[in-house]
Design a protein around this nucleic acid. Structure first.
Lengths: 148, 148
DNA sequence: GCTTGACCTAAAGTCAGGTTTAGGTACTAT
DNA sequence: ATAGTACCTAAACCTGACTTTAGGTCAAGC
C-alpha cells in the first residue's frame, strides 16, 4: 500500500492531480485509513489505464465511466472491450496523422538547411518535387496529400 | 485569392477559428480589400504549417513567433530550422509514447476477449506473461516497461 | 427600398483539466 | 510544547484555444 505522496513520486504526477482524479471518481473503490488514501495495486493499475486512456483522447468523465464498469463486474466486459477497441482505432489513426506531421517537419528541416546554404529561398521557391532528394520528396508529398 | 469562407471550406476549420488565428497574429502579412481578408497561397501554406506545428505540441504564441521570423527574412533561417528540428524530435518522442499506449490497448483488447470467453477474470488475474501469446506478451511488456 | 448573405469587430463566454489557496488534522523530532 | 512534515477538504482560480454574442458594413437580388 502506498500513500498519495509515494504514488506521486512513482508516477511523476502532482499530488493535486491524484486528488483531482479521485474527486472525479477515477478510484471508485480506494480505501482510506482515518481519512488518508491508501493506494493499492488496483489503483496503480487504474493509474496506468488512466494515462493510457487519456493519451488515447478520452475525457475524464469517460474514464470514470470505465472505472464504474470495472466495479460492476463481468456483465460489463463487452462494454469495456468495445471501449478499448474503439480507442485502439483512434490511436492508430492518430499515429498516422502524427507520421504525416513528422514528414512535414522533416521536409521543413531540409528546406531550411537548403535556405541557409543558399542564403535565400529563391531556388527553393521554384523547386519542383521531382528535383528534391528521393526521401524528402516522399516526405513532402505525404505531408501535403490532403486525402485524410 | 480566397475569402475566409472559402478557406474555411478548404481546411474544414470554422470561420471563427480563422479570425482568431488572424487576431493572434498568425497571418502577419495578410492583405485586405476594404476590410475583407484576402487569403493567398502564403496564407494557405501558413495554415498547413499552423496545423503541423499545433499537432507537434506548439502553442499559438510560439507559432506567432515563427510567423514573425518568416517576415523578418533570411537572417532568421537558423531559428526557424532549430524550431523544426526541435518539434521533429518532440513528435518522434510522442509517436514512441503513442506506440506504447497502442500496445497497452492491444493488450487490454485481448484481455477482455479472454475475460468474455472465461466469464470471469480468475485465470487472467494469475496469468504470468510467459503464458501469454507471443505478440500479446510483447505488447504487455512494452506497455508496462517504465523506462521512459 | 428592403431583405439576404457574406463579411467585419470587440468583448464576453465556455470548457477541460488541472492548480492554488485557505484552513485544518495528526504524527514526529528537537 | 512547538516546529516541521505529510496528509485532508472545499472552493476559488488559471490557462489555452476557441466560440458566441451583439452590433455593424456592404453588395446583390426581388
Amino acid at each position: 500500500m502506498y500513500t498519495i505522496g509515494q504514488v506521486s513520486e512513482l508516477f511523476g504526477l502532482p499530488i493535486s492531480t491524484l486528488r483531482y482524479y479521485d474527486k472525479e471518481g477515477l478510484f471508485p473503490t480506494i480505501q482510506r485509513d482515518s481519512g488518508i488514501r491508501k493506494f493499492g495495486e488496483k489503483e496503480l493499475e487504474a493509474l496506468r489505464v488512466i494515462e493510457c486512456l487519456k493519451k488515447s483522447g478520452l475525457e475524464i468523465k469517460d474514464i470514470k465511466q470505465f472505472m464504474e464498469w470495472c466495479v460492476q463486474g463481468s456483465e460489463t466486459y463487452p462494454q469495456r472491450r468495445k471501449l478499448f477497441l474503439h480507442q485502439k482505432a483512434a490511436v492508430e489513426a492518430e499515429i498516422e496523422r502524427m507520421n504525416r506531421v513528422l514528414d512535414m517537419l522533416r521536409f521543413k528541416c531540409w528546406y531550411y538547411e537548403q535556405a541557409i546554404r543558399d542564403g535565400n529561398e529563391d531556388r527553393l521557391s521554384h523547386l519542383q518535387p521531382e528535383k528534391m532528394p528521393e526521401d524528402i520528396r516522399r516526405a513532402y508529398e505525404h505531408a501535403h496529400s490532403m486525402d485524410a
